[in-house]
């Protein structure tokens, strides 16, 4: 089924959700929308309120204030909700003694659907051969597939997937990324939650970054990367003798000197310089042309001069820096993790 994405009315709107659990504020004015034809990444550190938001959208938890609407209605008012929204919250939530097929069968019956649709989604998710095995014996990756099969059961225009890549092998991850892209290409709205920004790279059209129960950024992926890059330039200085392909070792030793020289030159020229750690420098406050001119004038050769390409990870870390609830300083101090591990 193809859904008209031209009429890009949001399929899910979340407005001003607040929710407290005892003394803890889980949601503090969460507001965003999910649009058809797009994969919306929903990302934030653990405890940012992602799962609580999803549970409120699905009518499992009640918000203290604010509302979440699905196709303009509260979820709990939907008659056959799985035909509006397919969701995967917790892949392990199933009766372990029931077979995969029977698990889908009762779900299908609850939506007025039959066994044929069950066999279709088993096929889509590659579970046909495991259909008559007990779901309790499934690996986490297979449970994720079963959960996705359940989400697809009602052929819904909207999908909510909470950490669907967890426990999947590389082959499964590639398969799922393709599936999610094709669902969005059908015109469906996909909300894909993850605590790892890397998983959203190249798959999300839009990201909603959350921290401490509210939205920190809600932007198209391209816009977000531009904002974070902010006109910075990456330059890779090299020692004169290394130009043209000298010995790698000599280049590394001399390169360290070249970095210092280049840094001094660029700071003198009015730029602010940050070593990227891989032998290159990230320069802000100077255009690429100005950098090329400065280095040329001082006889510092360079092998690369490009507009800095921020990764989604950079954007995410920059946005959530203030909003991470649970860091692990104690662990880092004991030297179990490098101090810069997050």
């Amino acid at each position: 089924m193809v859904f008209p994405s031209l009429l890009a009315h949001p399929t899910i709107t979340v407005t001003g959700l607040h929710k407290r659990f005892g003394a803890t504020t889980a949601l503090d004015g969460m507001t965003f929308a999910v649009r058809p034809g797009q994969v919306t990444g929903f990302v934030g550190p653990n405890g940012a309120g992602k799962s609580t938001t999803l549970r409120i959208i699905l009518g499992l938890d009640a918000a203290d204030t604010g509302e979440a609407l699905v196709d303009g209605q509260p979820y709990r008012a939907l008659r056959h909700p799985l035909r509006h929204v397919g969701s995967l919250l917790d892949a392990s939530a199933l009766g372990p003694g029931r077979t995969a097929r029977n698990h889908l069968l009762w779900l299908a019956h609850s939506q007025g659907l039959g066994a044929r649709r069950v066999d279709e989604v088993l096929e889509t998710t590659g579970l046909t051969s495991a259909a008559r095995r007990r779901a309790g014996g499934f690996s986490l990756g297979m449970r994720q597939r079963l959960g996705i099969a359940a989400a697809l059961l009602g052929d819904p225009p909207t999908l909510l997937l909470d950490e669907p890549f967890n426990g999947m092998d590389p082959e499964g991850i590639i398969w799922l990324r393709r599936l999610i892209r094709s669902l969005a290409a059908d015109g469906r709205a996909v909300l894909l939650s993850s605590h790892l920004m890397r998983q959203l790279e190249d798959i999300a059209d839009r990201v909603v970054v959350v921290g401490r129960g509210r939205v920190l950024a809600d932007a198209a992926v391209g816009d977000l990367l531009t904002t974070v890059s902010d006109g910075r330039v990456t330059v890779r200085p090299v020692a004169p003798m290394a130009v043209g392909g000298g010995e790698a070792e000599a280049a590394a030793v001399a390169g360290a000197g070249a970095l210092d020289v280049a840094t001094a030159v660029l700071v003198d020229g009015g730029g602010s310089v940050l070593p990227a750690g891989d032998g290159s420098l990230v320069v802000a406050g100077l255009s690429a042309e100005a950098i090329a001119a400065l280095l040329g004038r001082h006889g510092v050769p360079f092998s690369e001069l490009t507009a800095h390409r921020a990764t989604l990870e950079d954007a995410y870390l920059q946005l959530t820096e203030q909003a991470v609830d649970y860091r692990a300083p104690a662990v880092a101090d004991r030297g179990v993790l490098p101090a810069d591990a997050r």
Partner: peptide
């Protein structure tokens, strides 16, 4: 259903 967490799936299917 509570022991396995299945209740969330049940209530999602039938709010």
């Amino acid at each position: 259903e509570y022991a396995t967490g299945l209740v969330t799936v049940t209530v999602t299917a039938v709010p």
